[in-house]
Design a binder for these strands. Structure first.
Length: 724
RNA sequence: GCCGGUGUGGCGGAAUUGGUAGACGCAGCGGAUUCAAAAUCCGCCGCUUAAUAGGCGUGUCGGUUCGAGUCCGACCACCGGCACCA
């Protein structure tokens, strides 16, 4: 089933992708597309080592991906993560000269640095193992060849780069400092990536932590060129001094601060035609090929001389074969299937498949026109897009959401969509987690038991003491609260809860337990509590209707209790509207309605005006809960005598007059500690409040024997008496 | 290691702009109702304390402030991401 789908859909996808992105240059944006040709399909020399080589040039869009973050309504933390990931930095790209031997390989060695002010402290340069200089040097140096090969086998992830041991080997070549003419050694370094930047870095061990570690290990010189805050030579014996400061030991640049040194050195390099100021991005191009069977085929074929070209329309679609055989050796089965890959004319079909991020980068657009089998997208995509509200886990904050933004812009530039961004608003919801229970089995592994099959014993405070399996009554170990998963057997099927309590209850529980972006801890008793509340609202409405038909509200005749309930009603409407509309904290909106329900329950006034005030409150409860428990409120709205459906009823409006308070309670503090609560008329002036606060018996007790230095009155909140 | 986040009662969480810590709910305890139970209703419920008076209390240590869960500095623990898990 899965295989079949992968094969068919994969073939369809790559056909569409190819048609729209590969072979045809759309008229509308042809000019743009020509210099933003999305495929960078190339053979790299290290193909022999098994590295895949199809990249999408997301870096061409780095600037726009960064700038447009300001235009989307996304959580700030996600935008921050993406900004950091794109990593725009201003620096200088400059060229080192090379000695006679190295200049046989290439003319000069280009590096990028954000710290040109430290240029005079360069004591060596580092190149990637895949760098031409590293390869050339390895030709006559088996140890270096072995080192390069080892580096190629290593990972390229950030975590690998940051945590691995920094290692290197001298190439024997010398680089020539562009300003001083000094010769410095060229090292191959395992932490320099060919895919990133120029594949080479200048090293200033005195002022960069990683360079310092490396220089110490290989006994390379460490020369300070930046003074510390006091203007002295910093101590660089143990660690690098990485802060900015004034230049020293830098000849004519001595005494300049970071900014002026940056400009002066950059200008000098420009004058000498040895460098230029450049903006650099941390973002790397998107390697989209995977050595896997599962995935959309990449519409490329490879020629006998190592060339790669896109397939033509006539050669499409490519369907993955279904009669594949998996063996113990692992790897993609189609790599051993000449029937699939050998095209018979000397050309080989590409057997790598696309990264699954590829499909998840545009599925939202495809959903709008999924029944169109002739085109990738049609005009319906424009009608629906951008997505108004996109909901997904925080784990997608960078990769999926950045790739999808990139892909959307790519589709825009090919005339497929008109919008600039795929997702207008974003909500990153948390995971559902639940308790875990297990026993250690004979093999030392863990057998996990579903929470439904376990009974937990608690002490009188409700703390979990022990747990037993219901089926045999024997103890099980209480594990942590973890993300629901098959492997931990702590999943709860929401359907069984829906069958038992109804969809409203399950929905209410999930929205009440925590704000949506936090993890949701599953709790059976919490579900039962939610069910109790639904029943309570149901009873409240029916009891209210049974109490009689209310007259029209007459604001002028209300007593204090009636006014208080009206105030509560309108405060609740205000809070719920804000919580749902602006804050998306549904849990606090529900809590506010619960408070209102509690207030209505205590309100036993069945006078004509009492019923009228209660009616207003009850209707507010039903309307405010209608997005949370739509089924129950639909029926209750009819019970309240409305002909229209609750879904068509307008959201309740607040009455500012109802929220006005006649009296206010102020908290009185002495030196910031709560000592009294006093009630005042809403219009009491500062002097009255101050005098009453100072006269309070308990306050007197605490200021007795002290001098009152200051009295702070925060209107509507508190009084703080400062005394010592 | 780097980037982003979280840390508050027995538990989930609230406190929105520096101003009453613990709203609301769960669990627990006590009571009413009932022949009994379920359901429902009422009360209590951070720790300490005889107390309605007080002391302590928001991961740890320090700081700013009349006042800090909230701001600043240092640290600890946990969660997400780190480009081939999808």
């Amino acid at each position: 089933m899965v295989l079949r789908q992968a094969g068919r859909e994969g073939g369809r996808l790559q056909e569409e992708l190819h048609r729209q992105l590969g072979s045809g240059r759309p008229d509308r944006t042809g000019q743009r597309a020509s210099h933003r040709w999305p495929w960078l399909a190339f053979r790299r020399a290290d193909r022999a080592q098994g590295n895949p080589a199809v990249f999408l040039r997301i870096t061409d869009y780095a600037e726009e991906l960064l700038a447009d973050l300001d235009k989307v309504e996304w959580p700030e933390q996600v935008k921050t993560m993406q900004r950091n990931w794109i990593g725009k930095s201003r620096g200088v790209e400059l060229s080192f000269g090379l000695d006679t031997a190295a200049s046989q390989v290439q003319e000069s060695l280009t590096v990028f640095t954000t710290r040109p002010d430290t240029l005079m402290g360069v004591t060596y340069v580092g190149v990637a193992a895949a760098h031409p200089l590293a390869k050339a040097a390895a030709e006559h140096n088996p140890a270096l060849a072995e080192f390069n090969a080892e580096c190629a086998r290593g990972g390229t992830s950030e975590a690998d780069m940051a945590t691995m041991e920094k290692r290197g080997m001298d190439t024997g070549y010398k680089a020539i400092h562009p300003l001083t003419g000094r010769e410095v050694p060229v090292f191959v370094a395992n932490f320099v990536l060919m895919e990133y930047g120029t594949g080479a870095v200048m090293a200033v061990p005195a002022h960069d932590e990683r360079d310092h570690e490396f220089a110490t290990k290989y006994e390379l010189p460490i020369e300070a060129v930046i003074a510390d805050a006091e203007g002295n030579t910093p101590d660089i014996s143990e660690a690098a001094f990485t802060e900015r400061g004034v230049l020293i030991n830098s000849g004519e640049f001595n005494g300049l601060d970071f900014e002026s040194a940056f400009d002066a050195i950059a200008n000098r390099l420009v004058e000498q035609n040895r460098g230029e100021i450049k903006t650099n991005f941390r973002l790397r191009d998107w390697g989209v090929s995977r050595q896997r069977y599962w995935g959309a085929p990449i519409p490329v074929k490879n020629g006998p001389n190592g060339e790669s070209i896109p397939l033509t329309d006539a050669e499409l679609p490519v369907a993955l074969p279904l009669d594949v055989e998996f063996d113990a050796s692992g790897g993609s089965p189609i790599k051993k299937m000449p029937s699939f890959s050998d095209l018979g004319d000397g050309w080989q079909r590409e057997t790598d498949t696309f990264d699954t991020f590829m499909e998840s980068s545009w599925y939202y657009a495809r959903f709008c026109c999924a029944d169109n089998h002739d085109a990738m997208l049609d005009e319906r995509a424009n009608y629906w897009l951008p997505v108004d509200y996109y909901i997904g886990g925080i784990e997608h904050a960078i990769l999926h959401l950045l790739y999808a933004r990139f892909f959307h812009k790519l589709m825009r530039d090919f005339g497929l969509v008109e919008s600039n961004e795929p997702f207008k608003q974003l909500l990153t919801q948390g995971m559902v987690i639940a308790d875990t229970f297990y026993r250690i089995n004979e093999k030392g592994g863990r057998d996990w038991f579903n929470p439904l099959d376990v009974e937990v014993k608690t002490d009188d405070k409700g703390r979990a003491l022990s747990a037993t399996l219901l089926s045999d009554g024997l103890p099980v170990v209480i594990g942590g609260t973890e993300k629901m998963s098959k492997s931990k057997n702590n999943g709860v099927d929401p359907q069984s809860m829906i069958d038992r309590f109804g969809a409203d209850t399950v929905r209410l529980f999930m929205m009440f337990a925590a704000p949506p972006e936090q993890s949701l801890e599953w709790s059976d008793s919490g579900v039962e509590g939610a069910h109790r509340f639904v029943k309570r609202v149901w009873r409240l409405v029916h009891e209210h209707v049974a109490a009689g038909t209310p007259v029209a509200l007459d604001m002028t005749t209300l007593n204090d209790d009636q006014k208080a309930l009206r105030r509560k009603t309108h405060e609740t409407i205000a809070k719920c509207s804000d919580d749902i509309g602006r804050r998306t904290t549904f849990n606090t909106a529900i809590a506010a309605v619960m408070e209102l329900v509690n207030a209505i329950s205590r309100f036993e006034d069945t006078s004509p005006q009492g019923l009228a005030v209660a009616r207003e409150a009850v209707e507010a409860c039903v309307l405010l809960l209608s997005p949370i428990i739509p089924h129950a409120t639909h029926t209750l709205w009819a019970t309240l005598g409305h002909a229209e459906a609750v879904i068509d009823a307008p959201w309740p409006a607040t009455d500012a007059d109802a929220m006005k308070k006649d009296s206010i309670e102020l908290v009185v503090q002495v030196n910031g500690k709560l000592r009294a609560r006093l009630s005042f008329p809403a219009d009491a002036d500062r002097d009255t409040i101050e005098a009453a606060a100072l006269a309070d018996a308990n306050v007197v007790k605490f200021v007795d024997g002290k001098t009152v230095r200051k009295v702070i009155v925060v209107p509507g909140k508190l009084v703080n008496i400062v005394a010592n």
